[in-house]
């Protein structure tokens, strides 16, 4: 196992390098340029736009720009934002806490809902509980977050007036009052994201448990006279966790990467909204930095998932 992890880690580095090259080329080829708005402004002569392009080196050949980027990245320089004219790492760091808080909480909420509901629904397939849980799950993923978010705003902010819908990451103050304010504004975004995620998790958990519950060893365990709770926890859930671990590992990078739509609706200053505004402004250094960190997390978490499989099911061998 140790050898396997070591081998995977040594592959991870060149593979990340490859991904970074592809990302860079893709962004360089993608249409749009950071100084587009200048060109549409009658007040700015083309020479200035040209001077800016030269200054930020965006007319150089792609490979040279990539090597320059890579060299800087290796030295810990994440680049310089065209739009904000500050260092990219500053921009990203400002947004990490909020993203972790909102998206992280929503993931926890999703798991907290989906695991018990999914397991219980699968224990009694086609019971009333199962049907209700399923219906909610279907509603959950047939409605996009831009829609449910708005629905919640209309109900809880506009009609009832209970919750604010503009997220402020800089509420002044401290103590319980402050914590409450902070929590109140996070309720809706966390609920929207968490329940959307929970809807699909529930279906996966239900399906995974259904798969396992029919296997012989569960019946054996039952017939040995083990009590039901123990059977479920020790034998069923553990084996059913493999797909869940896969999905969670797929979702974990998003805890950093943020949720573009939900962040937009509630004006959460997260990484997702940074990414989308950078994309719309064609602010390539920011896009590159965010997507590259995201790529690293994808690779790391998928590796982690592979390792956890082995722990969940010791028969899984890696050779």
């Amino acid at each position: 196992m140790g050898k396997y992890i070591l081998r995977r880690l040594t592959i991870a580095l060149p593979s990340l390098l490859g991904i970074s090259l592809i990302l860079f080329v893709l962004l360089a080829l993608a249409p749009g340029d950071p100084f587009g708005e200048l060109a549409t402004n009658s007040n700015i002569p083309p020479e200035v736009a040209a001077a800016l392009r030269v200054k930020f080196g965006i007319d150089d050949p792609i490979m040279i720009r990539y090597l320059r980027w890579l060299a800087a990245m290796l030295q810990g320089d994440w680049g310089f934002s065209f739009a904000s004219r500050i260092d990219v790492d500053q921009l990203i760091l400002q947004r990490v806490p909020t993203t972790l808080f909102v998206v992280g909480s929503s993931q926890i909420l999703a798991l907290a809902v989906a695991l018990p509901v999914g397991v219980y629904a699968a224990m009694r397939p086609y019971s009333i509980f199962d049907q209700i849980a399923n219906t909610f799950a279907f509603v959950g993923f047939s409605l996009p977050t831009f829609f449910t978010g708005l629905l919640l705003i209309l109900v809880f902010s506009v009609n009832l007036g209970w919750l604010p819908f503009v997220y402020r990451a800089d509420i002044p103050g401290s103590g319980w009052q402050w914590a409450w304010e902070y929590f109140k504004q996070a309720i809706m975004p966390i609920a929207v994201l968490g329940l959307f995620q929970a809807a699909s998790y529930t279906r996966y958990v239900r399906s995974a448990v259904l798969d396992v519950i029919r296997l012989d060893y569960v019946t054996t365990a039952r017939s040995k006279g083990l009590n039901e709770g123990k059977v479920v926890i020790k034998h069923v859930v553990r084996n059913a966790l493999i797909p869940v671990v896969t999905l969670v590992a797929l979702q974990m990078p998003a805890v950093f990467g943020g949720a573009i739509v939900t962040e937009q609706i509630f004006r959460i200053p997260g990484i997702g909204s940074l990414l989308i505004s950078a994309i719309l402004a064609n602010d390539t250094p920011v896009i590159m930095a965010v997507t590259f960190v995201f790529a690293c997390l994808v690779v790391v978490f998928n590796l982690l998932a592979d390792i956890i499989y082995g722990w969940l099911d010791p028969r899984i061998s890696y050779r």
């Binding site: 902010s157 007036g161 819908f165 609706i265």
Partner: peptide
């Protein structure tokens, strides 16, 4: 003074005209 940014125009209108948050 606080200048908050982001989101879309319709919900910004709501925050001033409908809920008075801004």
């Amino acid at each position: 003074l606080e200048v908050k940014g982001g989101g879309d125009a319709v919900s910004a209108a709501r925050a001033v005209l409908q809920t008075g948050e801004y």
